[in-house]
Lab assay of single mutants.
Amino acid sequence: EALLLQRRRVTVRKADAGGLGISIKGGRENKMPILISKIFKGLAADQTEALFVGDAILSVNGEDLSSATHDEAVQVLKKTGKEVVLEVKYMKD
Score class of each variant (00 low, 15 high):
32 M>V: 12
16 D>A: 13
71 D>S: 14
78 K>N: 08
45 A>V: 10
57 I>Q: 04
3 L>F: 13
64 D>W: 03
40 F>C: 14
88 V>F: 01
27 G>T: 00
9 R>N: 11
22 I>H: 01
7 R>E: 09
15 A>R: 11
53 V>P: 09
14 K>R: 10
27 G>P: 02
88 V>P: 01
92 K>M: 15
48 T>P: 06
32 M>C: 06
25 K>M: 12
47 Q>R: 14
91 M>V: 08
38 K>N: 13
25 K>S: 15
35 L>I: 11
3 L>E: 09
4 L>T: 09
49 E>R: 13
13 R>T: 15
87 E>L: 06
14 K>I: 12
92 K>T: 15
65 L>V: 12
87 E>H: 06
65 L>D: 00
20 L>S: 00
56 A>Q: 12
7 R>G: 09
92 K>L: 15
84 V>I: 14
20 L>C: 05
23 S>A: 15
7 R>A: 08
30 N>S: 12
60 V>I: 13
52 F>I: 07
57 I>T: 02
13 R>S: 12
12 V>W: 04
59 S>T: 09
61 N>S: 05
91 M>L: 10
54 G>A: 02
59 S>Q: 09
18 G>N: 12
25 K>I: 12
22 I>E: 02
13 R>P: 08
20 L>P: 02
57 I>C: 02
93 D>G: 08
86 L>S: 09
64 D>V: 06
66 S>C: 10
23 S>F: 10
83 E>D: 15
53 V>R: 04
66 S>E: 10
70 H>Y: 14
17 A>I: 14
15 A>T: 12
64 D>K: 05
28 R>S: 13
34 I>M: 01
24 I>E: 03
92 K>W: 11
70 H>S: 11
48 T>D: 05
49 E>A: 15
11 T>F: 07
87 E>N: 05
74 V>D: 08
68 A>L: 11
9 R>Y: 14
66 S>A: 10
63 E>N: 13
65 L>S: 02
58 L>Q: 06
10 V>L: 05
24 I>F: 05
61 N>G: 07
51 L>Q: 03
23 S>E: 12
13 R>A: 08
21 G>T: 00
67 S>G: 14
63 E>W: 13
14 K>Q: 09
13 R>G: 06
4 L>K: 13
72 E>Q: 14
47 Q>W: 06
17 A>R: 14
67 S>W: 10
90 Y>W: 08
45 A>D: 07
68 A>Q: 06
46 D>H: 09
87 E>I: 10
1 E>Q: 12
47 Q>E: 11
58 L>H: 04
27 G>M: 01
60 V>F: 04
54 G>P: 00
64 D>A: 05
45 A>L: 05
89 K>N: 07
69 T>E: 05
42 G>D: 06
71 D>Y: 13
90 Y>L: 10
18 G>V: 11
70 H>R: 11
38 K>M: 06
71 D>N: 13
53 V>E: 10
72 E>L: 06
68 A>C: 13
34 I>G: 02
55 D>E: 02
14 K>S: 09
14 K>P: 14
22 I>N: 00
8 R>S: 02
51 L>V: 06
63 E>F: 13
66 S>K: 09
62 G>P: 00
61 N>R: 00
56 A>H: 06
49 E>M: 09
34 I>H: 04
16 D>Y: 09
40 F>I: 12
87 E>A: 04
89 K>E: 14
1 E>A: 07
11 T>E: 09
55 D>Y: 02
35 L>W: 12
20 L>V: 07
63 E>H: 14
8 R>H: 01
16 D>C: 11
57 I>R: 02
70 H>M: 10
88 V>K: 02
89 K>C: 11
7 R>D: 06
66 S>G: 09
18 G>E: 10
51 L>N: 03
58 L>M: 12
39 I>F: 01
68 A>H: 10
90 Y>N: 10
20 L>I: 13
24 I>R: 02
69 T>Y: 06
59 S>V: 06
26 G>H: 00
4 L>Y: 15
91 M>Y: 15
65 L>P: 02
3 L>G: 11
50 A>N: 14
7 R>K: 15
32 M>L: 07
4 L>F: 13
69 T>F: 06
26 G>K: 02
51 L>H: 02
91 M>C: 12
11 T>L: 10
8 R>F: 00
14 K>V: 08
60 V>N: 03
81 G>V: 06
27 G>E: 00
25 K>T: 12
65 L>H: 03
93 D>V: 07
39 I>C: 02
16 D>K: 13
68 A>Y: 11
67 S>F: 12
23 S>L: 13
7 R>F: 07
36 I>W: 02
18 G>I: 10
11 T>P: 05
48 T>N: 07
21 G>L: 03
65 L>G: 00
89 K>W: 07
54 G>M: 02
58 L>E: 07
18 G>T: 13
65 L>M: 11
89 K>H: 11
29 E>D: 10
50 A>G: 13
36 I>M: 00
67 S>D: 12
39 I>V: 08
11 T>G: 04
54 G>D: 08
57 I>K: 01
20 L>K: 00
10 V>Q: 02
7 R>W: 04
14 K>D: 10
65 L>N: 01
22 I>M: 09
68 A>V: 13
34 I>C: 05
71 D>V: 07
22 I>C: 02
49 E>W: 04
59 S>C: 12
50 A>P: 07
26 G>D: 01
17 A>S: 14
59 S>F: 08
48 T>L: 01
20 L>Q: 04
27 G>L: 02
49 E>G: 12
22 I>A: 01
64 D>G: 06
3 L>Q: 09
1 E>S: 09
91 M>E: 08
14 K>H: 11
13 R>L: 13
62 G>W: 01
39 I>R: 02
39 I>M: 05
70 H>C: 12
39 I>A: 02
36 I>V: 08
93 D>S: 10
85 V>F: 07
36 I>F: 03
15 A>L: 14
8 R>I: 01
1 E>R: 08
3 L>A: 08
2 A>G: 14
63 E>R: 15
66 S>P: 00
15 A>P: 13
4 L>E: 11
10 V>I: 13
5 L>F: 07
69 T>G: 06
2 A>C: 12
90 Y>F: 14
38 K>R: 13
14 K>M: 05
24 I>W: 03
9 R>C: 12
39 I>S: 03
59 S>D: 05
7 R>V: 13
16 D>Q: 14
61 N>Q: 04
62 G>T: 05
93 D>L: 08
1 E>L: 07
27 G>H: 02
67 S>P: 04
21 G>V: 03
11 T>Y: 07
68 A>R: 06
38 K>H: 13
55 D>P: 00
37 S>K: 11
8 R>M: 02
4 L>V: 14
38 K>Q: 12
68 A>T: 07
60 V>W: 02
9 R>A: 09
70 H>V: 12
17 A>Q: 13
63 E>L: 14
50 A>L: 12
18 G>F: 11
91 M>A: 10
14 K>F: 09
40 F>R: 14
2 A>R: 14
77 L>V: 03
17 A>P: 13
61 N>F: 02
53 V>A: 07
57 I>M: 03
52 F>A: 08
63 E>Y: 11
80 T>N: 10
7 R>M: 13
36 I>N: 00
45 A>W: 04
88 V>Q: 03
76 V>D: 07
48 T>S: 11
91 M>G: 08
39 I>P: 01
38 K>S: 10
92 K>I: 15
66 S>I: 07
65 L>T: 09
24 I>V: 10
